[in-house]
Simulated assay, not measured.
Amino acid sequence: MDRPAVHGFKAHLGADADTALVEEIAVTPANINDGKAGPDALPDNSGEVFADSAYRGNHFGDAVRDKGGTPRIVATGMWGRDETGPP
Rank of each mutant, 00 (worst) to 15 (best):
D2G: 02
R3F: 08
A5H: 15
V6R: 15
V6P: 02
V6G: 08
F9W: 13
K10M: 11
K10R: 15
D18K: 12
T19P: 03
L21G: 06
V22F: 12
E23Q: 13
E23N: 00
E24Q: 14
E24C: 13
I25M: 15
I25T: 15
A26P: 01
V27T: 14
P29I: 06
P29C: 09
P29Y: 06
N33Y: 12
K36S: 08
K36Q: 14
A37C: 06
G38C: 10
G38A: 15
G38W: 04
D40L: 14
L42P: 06
D44S: 12
S46T: 13
G47A: 03
G47E: 04
G47D: 09
G47F: 03
F50K: 05
F50V: 14
A51T: 01
D52V: 10
D52L: 08
D52W: 11
S53M: 00
A54N: 00
R56E: 07
G57N: 07
H59S: 07
H59K: 09
F60A: 01
F60V: 03
D62E: 15
A63W: 06
V64R: 04
V64T: 05
R65I: 05
R65E: 10
R65K: 14
D66Y: 03
P71R: 05
T76Y: 01
G77I: 01
M78Y: 07
G80R: 10
R81Y: 11
D82L: 04
D82Q: 11
E83C: 00
E83V: 04
G85Y: 03
G85E: 09
P86A: 08
